[in-house]
Measured scan of single mutants.
Amino acid sequence: GALPANLDDMKVAELKQELKLRSLPVSGTKTELIERLRAYQDQ
């Protein structure tokens, strides 16, 4: 599914939920979580 547009405004817990939905690792800082989601979306 498409990512929420406001990733930077989301809480870390919400970002981790998005990562879990995509079976991605949820470790790292908020910035790393956002980068991981964006990289996944670009595939």
Rank of each mutant, 00 (worst) to 15 (best):
R38C: 05
R38Y: 09
K30L: 05
A2W: 08
K16A: 04
A2L: 14
V12T: 15
L24A: 05
S27L: 03
K30N: 04
T29A: 09
T31I: 12
P25G: 07
A5I: 15
E32T: 08
P4I: 15
T31Y: 06
N6D: 07
G28E: 01
Q17Y: 05
L21A: 11
K11D: 10
A39T: 13
A39N: 15
D42M: 10
L24W: 01
G28Q: 01
P25S: 07
S23G: 15
E18G: 01
S27Q: 03
P4D: 14
M10K: 07
D42G: 10
L24Y: 00
E14Y: 07
L7E: 00
M10V: 00
R22K: 04
L33S: 09
T29P: 11
E35P: 02
V12E: 12
E18P: 00
L15H: 01
V26A: 14
E35G: 11
V12L: 13
L15C: 00
D8C: 13
T29H: 08
R22C: 07
V12P: 03
E14G: 07
L7H: 00
A39I: 10
L21K: 13
G1E: 04
P4A: 12
E18M: 05
N6R: 10
Q41R: 12
M10S: 05
L19S: 05
P4R: 14
Y40P: 14
M10L: 06
D9A: 14
L3H: 15
P25W: 01
K30D: 02
A2F: 11
D42S: 10
T29M: 03
E14P: 01
R38S: 08
I34H: 07
L33N: 15
E18L: 04
K11E: 12
G28N: 00
Q17G: 07
L24N: 00
Q43I: 11
G28A: 00
L21F: 07
N6F: 03
A5P: 00
L3V: 12
L37S: 03
M10W: 03
K11P: 07
P25A: 05
D8N: 10
K16Q: 14
P25V: 04
L15G: 02
Q43C: 10
E14V: 08
A5R: 12
D8V: 12
K20D: 09
D42A: 14
S27V: 05
L21M: 15
L15W: 00
D42F: 06
L37E: 02
S23T: 09
R36T: 08
D9E: 15
E18I: 00
N6G: 11
P4E: 15
L7N: 00
K16N: 03
Q17E: 12
E32C: 07
E32M: 05
E14H: 13
V12A: 10
P25Q: 07
I34C: 08
Q41L: 12
L37G: 04
R38A: 14
L7R: 01
L15R: 00
R36N: 04
E14F: 05
V12G: 06
L24S: 03
L3C: 11
P25H: 00
Q17M: 12
L37Q: 01
G28V: 00
A5D: 11
D9K: 15
Q41T: 13
K11Y: 01
L3W: 08
E18V: 07
P25I: 15
Q43G: 15
L24R: 03
Y40S: 15
K16Y: 08
A39V: 14
R38V: 07
D42W: 04
V12F: 10
E14D: 05
E18Q: 05
M10E: 00
E14A: 09
Q41G: 15
L21W: 05
K11V: 09
R38T: 06
I34F: 10
K16H: 13
D42K: 11
G28Y: 01
Q41Y: 04
D9T: 14
T31H: 08
S27E: 11
S23L: 10
S23Q: 09
G1L: 03
I34Q: 13
L24H: 00
E32H: 04
D42Q: 09
Q17R: 09
K11S: 10
R38K: 08
K30M: 04
V26Q: 13
L33P: 03
P4Y: 15
Y40V: 13
Y40M: 11
D42T: 11
R38H: 06
L19W: 00
T31E: 12
L3K: 07
A2T: 13
L7W: 03
L19C: 09
E18H: 03
L19Q: 03
L15Q: 01
R22F: 00
R38L: 06
A39R: 14
R36H: 02
D8H: 11
A2P: 10
I34K: 10
Q17C: 02
S23C: 12
I34S: 07
E14W: 04
A2D: 15
L15E: 01
L24M: 09
S27Y: 08
L19A: 10
R38M: 09
L3F: 14
S23F: 06
D8K: 10
S23A: 11
L7Q: 01
E35S: 12
L15D: 04
L19K: 01
Y40Q: 07
S23Y: 11
L33E: 03
L33A: 05
E32K: 06
A5G: 12
G1R: 07
K16R: 07
E35T: 07
N6W: 01
L7P: 04
A2V: 12
K30W: 01
E32S: 06
P25Y: 05
G28T: 00
K30I: 07
L21D: 11
K30Y: 05
D8M: 08
R36P: 09
D8R: 12
E32Y: 01
Y40A: 15
T31R: 11
Q41I: 10
L15M: 02
D9G: 13
R38P: 08
N6E: 11
R22N: 02
M10R: 02
Q43A: 15
R38G: 10
S27T: 06
T31W: 05
V26P: 14
D8P: 14
E35Q: 15
L7C: 07
T29N: 05
K16L: 03
A5C: 01
D42P: 12
D8Q: 13
D42N: 14
D9C: 11
L24K: 03
K20W: 04
G1S: 03
N6T: 12
P4W: 12
L37V: 05
P4L: 15
T31M: 09
D42L: 09
L15T: 03
L24D: 00
Q43R: 15
L19T: 03
L7D: 00
Y40E: 13
V26G: 10
K11W: 01
L3N: 13
S23K: 13
I34G: 04
L24V: 04
Q17D: 05
Q41K: 14
A5E: 14
K11I: 08
R22Q: 09
Q43S: 10
I34Y: 11
L37M: 07
S27R: 07
L15I: 13
Y40C: 13
R38Q: 05
E35M: 05
L33Q: 08
D9P: 03
Q17N: 00
K30C: 04
E32P: 02
N6C: 02
L21P: 02
A39W: 12
E18C: 06
A39L: 13
N6V: 08
L37T: 03
D42Y: 04
V12N: 01
R38D: 02
L7A: 09
L3S: 10
D9N: 11
S27A: 14
Y40F: 13
K20A: 11
P25R: 04
K20Y: 15
T31D: 11
D42H: 06
E14Q: 09
R38I: 09
L37Y: 05
A5V: 14
T31G: 10
E14T: 08
L21T: 12
L37W: 03
E18R: 02
V26W: 02
L15P: 01
I34D: 02
S23V: 06
R38E: 12
L37A: 03
E35R: 10
T29V: 05
S23D: 12
E14C: 04
D42V: 12
E35W: 06
D8W: 14
P4F: 05
E35I: 07
T31N: 04
E14K: 06
I34A: 07
S27D: 13
G28P: 00
S23I: 04
A39M: 15
G28C: 01
L24P: 01
